[in-house]
């Protein structure tokens, strides 16, 4: 589904990514791990079409997506959530989800239709809100939500695009350990219910990484250090010490 081949990204003399190749199949849940500065953010930005790689190719569903930008990427069927919650502070929960649905249905430039009368958009938004357990807060403004719900809303709005592939940038950072598993279970369930085929996540919490991934890609200093199943990674002492042992340098 997503194929990254020989991607290099240079910032001046600094090489953020070096010969990175990876492939993500339909139905896979892949985690990207690595210490700070390993190039995870750059990789995400390359994969989401925001940055053009210096060399190498990025294909999504056999289409070259280098630098195509977020809007066209969303239309192609890839969505993302953000590490630092980025929500629409003044919109309600339901409205935030509706933005994605309106955009997916191509109704964003309808000027004179009443949004409130659009049952299709409303029902679909309610459905997503329910999947994420946000139905009771649907009229609350996003900025008034607790941190965990903000995270969920950010992911929910991305899910509402019904993408085939979704990229989650640290979906559980900044929330309590107790909430982390709740969030992940909701995400996994919702993705099954909504027919999302691949999930790529960047995550620091190793319990989450080992608990939910089918496969783990370990980055170190811009290179792929390992690309294997959770069990294999756990068995590899070198990777564990370089990537996991020192999550913050």
């Amino acid at each position: 589904m997503l194929r990254v081949e020989g991607v290099r990204k240079l910032y001046g003399d600094f090489c953020a990514l070096e010969e990175v190749s990876l492939e993500i199949q339909a139905g896979e849940f892949v985690s990207i791990i690595g210490p700070n500065g390993a190039g995870k953010t750059t990789l995400i930005n390359v994969v989401t079409g925001l940055l053009k790689p210096t060399s190498g190719t990025v294909h999504f569903k056999d289409r070259d997506i280098r630098g195509i930008g977020p809007v066209r990427l969303a239309k192609l069927g890839m969505a993302r959530s953000f590490q630092l919650v980025t929500i629409f502070p003044e919109l309600s929960v339901l409205e935030a989800i509706q933005v994605a649905i309106v955009s997916r249905l191509g109704r964003g430039t309808r000027l004179f239709h009443a949004l409130a009368a659009d049952r299709e958009v409303r029902d679909q938004a309610l459905e997503v809100a329910e999947l994420f357990g946000l139905q009771d807060k649907r009229d609350a403004r996003a900025r008034q939500l607790p941190q965990g719900d903000k995270k969920l809303l950010d992911v929910a709005s991305a899910f509402a695009l019904r993408p085939e592939c979704i990229l989650l940038d640290e979906p559980t950072s900044g929330v309590s350990t107790a909430e982390k598993n709740t969030i992940m279970q909701i995400v996994v369930q919702a993705s099954k219910r909504m027919g999302i085929r691949s999930i790529i996540q960047v995550e620091h919490d190793m319990d989450i990484v080992f608990g939910y991934s089918d496969r783990i890609v370990a980055l170190h200093q811009g290179k792929v250090l390992a690309d294997a199943s959770p069990a294999e990674i756990q068995a590899d002492e070198q990777v564990m010490s370089m990537v996991v042992g020192r999550p913050t340098h």
Binding site: T48, G69, P70, V71, L73, A74, K75, A79, R80, F82, T86, I87, F88, P89, E90, L91, E95, A96, Q98, V99, A100, V102, S103, R104, G108, L115, D154, S157, A158, A160, L161
Partner: peptide, 17 residues
Amino acid sequence: LCLRSIRDNPEKAEYLG
């Protein structure tokens, strides 16, 4: 709605298409 989403957070709005 799209305008308000852009006002609140243009980057996020872009990623929602």
